[in-house]
Amino acid sequence: MRDIELLTEIINSIKDNNNTSRLDNIKPETNLRDQLSFDSLDLAELTVRIEQKFGVDIFENGVVLTVGEVLDKIKGRDEK
């Protein structure tokens, strides 16, 4: 599976737990807070789930705002 599909899975599992509707597709420009309405607990869960899956802490060096920035962090890990 591509990174973006795995990330969509993770985001949807967080949305399931919040009882909010799943997304069919996410775009790199999707904003985690403004469009997905993720609060601090949602973002914390997102980082932990991504770390478990990809071994990278997306918020380690500051806050990321969009799906594209998350994907860059995941990709950055592959290139290290």
Binding site: D16, N17, S40, L41, L43, A44, E45, T47, V48, E51, D57, F59, E60
Partner: peptide, 27 residues
């Protein structure tokens, strides 16, 4: 579990008595 947003989040491991209990119902 540590993270850089809230310091920690709460994680649970659950052993169920018999198959059938779903995460949604537990939540």
């Amino acid at each position: 579990k540590r993270n850089s947003i809230t310091g920690n989040i709460v994680i649970a491991e659950v052993m169920i008595k018999e198959p059938g209990l779903e995460e949604k119902a537990l939540r």
